[in-house]
């Protein structure tokens, strides 16, 4: 969803950092995207290509760290792994799972020169 907005958010973060720290070029951008963040990775890559053009991060490698989804199952009272929001609890088979982790979308760090 809204991958273009996310790409623009990433560019904004990179440009803010460049203004603060005075680097001229970004060679790598490391992202952390949760499995339940609803981000279409291929679309994000496409949007980043477009958005980073003519910026300090043009041509930068995009490294992606995927964090696993977790949820709290109200049925069995345990934290369980979740691959998708519509999945049943792997322990009890119920659908009382509230997503608790894996929804983050962050810029972790940059390699700059």
């Amino acid at each position: 969803m809204h991958e273009m907005s996310l790409a623009e958010g990433i560019l904004q973060i990179v440009e803010d950092a460049a203004a603060r720290q005075g680097f001229k070029r970004v060679t790598e951008v490391r992202l952390e995207i949760g499995a339940l963040a609803g981000v279409e990775i291929e679309a994000l890559g496409f949007c980043l290509d477009v958005v980073l053009k003519d910026s300090v991060a043009e041509g930068a490698r995009i490294e992606l760290e995927k964090t696993p989804g977790t949820g709290y199952c109200l049925g069995c009272g345990e934290t369980v792994p979740v691959n998708a929001l519509y999945e049943a609890c792997p322990n009890c088979g119920g659908y009382q799972v509230q997503a608790t982790g894996g929804t983050e979308m962050r810029v972790k760090d940059l390699l700059v020169e």
Binding site: Q12, I13, A17, E28, L31, R106, V107, D109, V112, E113
Partner: peptide, 20 residues
């Protein structure tokens, strides 16, 4: 990463993409 091997350095960001 091996930032020491080139002129590259790492900048820690740790910011939410939707932070703004």
């Amino acid at each position: 990463h091996a930032p020491g091997l080139s002129q590259e350095r790492m900048v820690r960001i740790e910011q939410d993409i939707l932070g703004k």
